[in-house]
């Protein structure tokens, strides 16, 4: 469905992450936390309770020394399109319309003031991309000074997740409208993790736009709900038909296999 409106042509913002280049350094996680006012506790080692919109998982090939291999896999919200557009696993179960699929951008939103914390979406999300605030966030004295005014601070009792730095999209659109434009340049809107990645492993843009690098790298097939045409590319748990907009590139076969295996996320969920 193409919508021409105030925001220009409809977009499908997505991400391509090159796992051959990812160094596992965690700069994307830090940039995300800094950009989005993600809270932190004194102990963040219980990963089920650790709020990480972007989380870098370590995958292992399961082989013994010296054939062991590891690979890092950064996992933002996958912004699933679902079986039909907008039928993301989380959106379809939210009773409060606190999470919604934006047909203009393809971004799955999270509206904190609407969320009343039922956590259906967390149960529905196969990627563990959603996090619940079990406590009110506390910043050590003085640290609240660095909070970003463009992103609301969350509070106890609600679910939060990656929104592809939606506030950056809004800012970029405001600027574009002010300058009399309805379309954004590719680099005008980039997520904080993409911008920060020191290895240049994360690429972000409009999957509908053949000029954008994400389109060229993933080569999404619109007739097959965005399945990647690039043989190096895959999506996580493709078999679940969630149709995510985050693609991964890897030249290692075992990584592709790991990405298709439901056990992968189950196993990661044990850490989650």
């Amino acid at each position: 469905m193409k919508i021409e409106g105030e925001q220009g042509k409809s977009k499908k913002y997505g991400m391509v992450i090159d796992l051959d280049k990812c160094t596992g350094c965690g700069a994307c996680m830090v940039a995300c936390m800094a950009e989005n006012n993600v809270p932190f506790k004194q102990d963040e080692s219980d990963k089920r309770l650790s709020i990480t919109w972007m989380r870098v998982y370590q995958l292992t090939n399961g082989k013994a020394f010296p054939d062991a291999d590891i690979c890092y896999l950064p996992r933002p919200c996958q912004h699933c399109e679902g079986m039909h557009e907008g039928h993301s696993p989380c959106v379809s179960v939210c009773p409060a319309t606190a999470t919604d699929y934006d047909a203009q951008t393809g971004i799955v939103s999270q509206i904190y003031t609407r969320c009343f914390g039922c956590r259906y979406c967390m149960a529905a999300c196969p990627y563990h991309a959603r996090h619940f605030n079990w406590w009110d966030p506390v910043w050590p004295e003085g640290m609240e000074k660095y909070l970003n005014p463009d992103v609301s601070v969350r509070m106890r009792g609600i679910v939060e997740k990656c929104g592809f730095c939606f506030s950056r999209y809004q800012k970029a659109m405001e600027k574009a409208h002010y300058e009399g434009r309805r379309e954004l340049e590719e680099l005008e809107y980039q997520t904080a993790c993409t911008q920060a990645c020191p290895a240049g492993a994360i690429v972000f843009g409009d999957l509908n736009n053949p000029q954008h690098r994400v389109h060229q790298l993933a080569q999404p097939d619109p007739r097959r709900r965005g399945r990647p045409g690039n043989p190096k590319a895959f999506r996580l748990l493709e078999e679940l038909q969630t149709y995510p907009k985050v693609y991964y590139l890897s030249s290692r076969e075992w990584v592709h296999k790991a990405g298709h295996k439901a056990e992968l996320i189950k196993e990661a969920g044990a850490h989650h």
């Binding site: 830090v30 940039a31 800094a34 004295e141 003085g142 660095y146 911008q195 920060a196 990645c197 240049g200």
Partner: peptide, 20 residues
């Protein structure tokens, strides 16, 4: 050298600057 990239420690520098 960096060309716009940043390491995670420098990216988290505000926590040290404003830290208790």
């Amino acid at each position: 050298g960096n060309e716009g990239g940043i390491c995670n420690l420098c990216a988290a520098g505000l926590q040290l600057h404003y830290g208790p």
